[in-house]
């Protein structure tokens, strides 16, 4: 069996009192394997531990007990921290608070500059990264001239210019409007498909989970549900009890199924539903 890119083994994490009150446990016995090229979505309401999970992947946090291995490197190994951060890029929620430089191209160059990449190489990486997120024509713009979705795409470019194997996105769409959200979602899906970059996408928007290979649902620091989007969304009752939404179509499918309609569990999209109800078409 092939080695996972990221492996969490019995990970527990307790926030120190200074950070979150009474020694709050944010991760409890988390076991997780993420393989190269996968698109994994992590769902959960606020405070479910999903952000804490994300910060463990690139050693911004390290487990209180247990182990996180990234591409063969243990995240508690101080010597390897910078290597891990090169392999795992992170994009955060607030588009305004993660861009450092006064122009788009300088910002995308920030990561490779930190890695000590030679100038000429940085220039070509900046160009290809901006191209990959469709922001090349904005290279000389200043960040405050961009829309939220555009800022997040620049932030993504700033991460892929470090040539990571994996990108962790911590609620990158929470502060965006619908257009911004779809810009960001199509960008990360195309990076996953075309460049083979592993994606760990953290969100509470159900519709952003549908295209993932695998969905992980978290609650109170534990992984409570795991599977394909279809498998996860067939658990409508459980999701509700975890204060999570289900897409309207899935909700309807569930209701009709209970009324005796022959509709499979976890029906996700409008198209699927139309096919089911109008099979002659």
């Amino acid at each position: 069996m092939r080695e996972p890119l990221i492996r969490f083994t019995d990970v527990n994490f307790i926030y120190a009192k200074a950070h979150g009150g009474e020694g709050l446990a944010a991760l409890k016995d988390v076991n997780l394997d993420v393989f190269e090229g996968e698109f994994v979505a992590v769902l959960g309401h606020n405070g479910s531990g999903k952000s804490t999970l994300a910060k463990h992947v690139n050693a911004l946090l390290t487990p209180t007990s247990g182990q996180v291995i990234v591409d063969g490197l243990d995240t508690v190994d101080q010597e390897k921290v910078w290597e891990i951060r090169q392999k795992v890029g992170m994009v955060f929620q607030n588009p305004d608070n993660q861009l450092v430089a006064t122009t788009v191209e300088e910002d995308v160059a920030f990561g490779p500059e930190n890695l000590g990449v030679p100038s000429l190489e940085i220039q070509s990486r900046v160009t290809s990264s901006l191209e990959a997120v469709g922001m090349l024509s904005y290279r000389l713009h200043s960040p405050h001239q961009l829309s939220g979705g555009q800022k997040q795409r620049v932030a993504i470019a700033g991460v892929i210019s470090m040539l990571p194997k994996c990108i962790v996105l911590d609620e990158p769409t929470a502060m965006l409007d619908p257009n911004g959200r779809s810009e960001v979602m199509s960008t990360i899906h195309s990076l996953n498909r075309e460049k083979g970059i592993t994606v760990l996408h953290i969100t509470h928007h159900m519709d952003e989970v549908i295209g993932a290979d695998r969905v992980i649902v978290m609650d109170e620091g534990r992984i409570v549900l795991q599977g394909t989007p279809r498998e996860v969304f067939s658990q409508v009752e459980l999701l509700r009890s975890l204060h999570l939404d289900v897409p309207q179509v899935t909700d309807l499918a569930e209701r009709l199924r209970k009324r005796g309609f022959e509709i499979p569990q976890g029906t996700l999209t409008v198209n699927e539903m139309v096919m089911l109800l109008c099979p002659s078409d």
């Binding site: 309207q248 179509v249 309807l252 009324r259 409008v270 539903m273 139309v274 109800l277 109008c278």
Partner: peptide
């Protein structure tokens, strides 16, 4: 999404009312 579904069903020949805004309404109509 639910309104969109009703439009799509209608376009595919199912004679439903498209003036639907909630899941419960859609359920009853179908």
């Amino acid at each position: 999404e639910i309104t969109e579904l009703m439009y799509e069903l209608k376009a595919h020949g199912l004679d439903v009312d498209t003036e639907i805004l909630t899941v419960a309404e859609a359920e009853a109509e179908i």
